[in-house]
Simulated assay, not measured.
Amino acid sequence: MNDLRFCPTCGAKLENDERFCGQCGFDTETIENFDGMTQLNDQQKLVEDNSNLQAIDSGQSPKSFAQNKTQKKSAQSIIIILSVAIGCFILIAGIAFWWFNQGKNIFGKAETSVAVVNGENKASLSLPSYSVNEGSYTAAQNIAIIIPAGEEVQVFYTIDGTDPTAKATKYETPIILQTNTTLKSIAIDKKGNQSGIKTATYTIVIPQTATTQPQTTTPAAATNADERAQFESNINGTWKVRDSSGFVLYYT
């Protein structure tokens, strides 16, 4: 019979040639490989001894040390699970953001449009823009057309409501609008690439200014009471009188 140092069931120390464990009654002859069991018991005992030494070094009891070790493992597991969950949430949110915004102008780029010329799609240019927003105004408006970036880009416009082409008026200086106007413009580069048509409607109603008639004054009467009295008192001598225009006449 092989020599077992510890019972494989309860860990109690066994005497040589002892078949039954004196503590739990385990029958050692039911184990086929006693040498392997002995080694297993020795390893378990070594692990327990190491744990006890670590507990003593940390100033804790073996039981408290084992509980703290278990709690640390649980905390580490929770942290790992939370990290994975947060990573999955960020990934899903990023995919959703891309999915709902793909193909959209989400970064504030200028308006663009693909022009079709003779049945062919031309490379798109940004639409022209205007210095004054469309709307209603009570005074004349000075509209500047902002030419989009590109290689030798020119802008052509109309103010009669028709769609502009390369044969329309070329923009060079700001446009003064004094009446209701629909302004349309198109950008064309040297390769013939075109933008879409930019349209803006301006309603301009200039209030009428009221006019006043000049006031007229009536000249003073030809004479007054004092001058008449002077005339009568000096009828035989020199006298004066004021006519209708305000001049004083002297008579002798």
Rank of each mutant, 00 (worst) to 15 (best):
K13F: 14
W239V: 03
T158W: 06
T138V: 11
I204F: 03
G161Y: 12
V153K: 06
E172Q: 11
A220R: 12
Q71R: 00
T217S: 15
R242A: 05
I145S: 06
N101D: 13
I78M: 11
G11N: 13
D35C: 07
C88M: 15
I81V: 08
L177V: 09
I147S: 03
P219L: 10
I147L: 05
T212Q: 06
S58M: 11
G36L: 11
G11T: 10
Y202W: 04
N52G: 09
N41T: 11
F89G: 12
N142S: 12
V117D: 14
G11A: 10
Y157T: 04
K63V: 07
L91P: 05
A110F: 03
G108C: 08
I235H: 02
Q71W: 02
S124Y: 07
K63E: 14
D3K: 00
V155L: 09
L82C: 11
G87T: 01
Q213L: 13
P219H: 05
E32K: 00
Y130F: 08
S77A: 14
L177G: 09
K69E: 15
S124L: 06
Y130K: 03
K198D: 13
G196S: 01
Q23N: 11
N2G: 05
L127W: 07
T9L: 12
K167A: 15
T158G: 03
N234G: 02
N224S: 12
Q44C: 10
D27S: 04
Y202K: 00
K122F: 13
N121C: 01
I90Q: 01
K69A: 15
T70F: 02
F65M: 01
N193Q: 02
E134P: 11
Q208D: 14
Q215V: 12
Q39G: 06
N50D: 15
Q54E: 14
I159S: 09
P219F: 07
R5M: 09
C21H: 04
Y157S: 03
I143N: 01
V153P: 15
G161D: 14
G192H: 05
G192P: 03
D49H: 05
A96K: 00
F97G: 08
F6D: 08
T209H: 05
G150D: 09
D27K: 00
K109T: 12
A12T: 09
C24Q: 01
Y130V: 02
A66R: 01
T182W: 07
T238D: 15
V155H: 08
D49N: 07
I145D: 12
D27W: 03
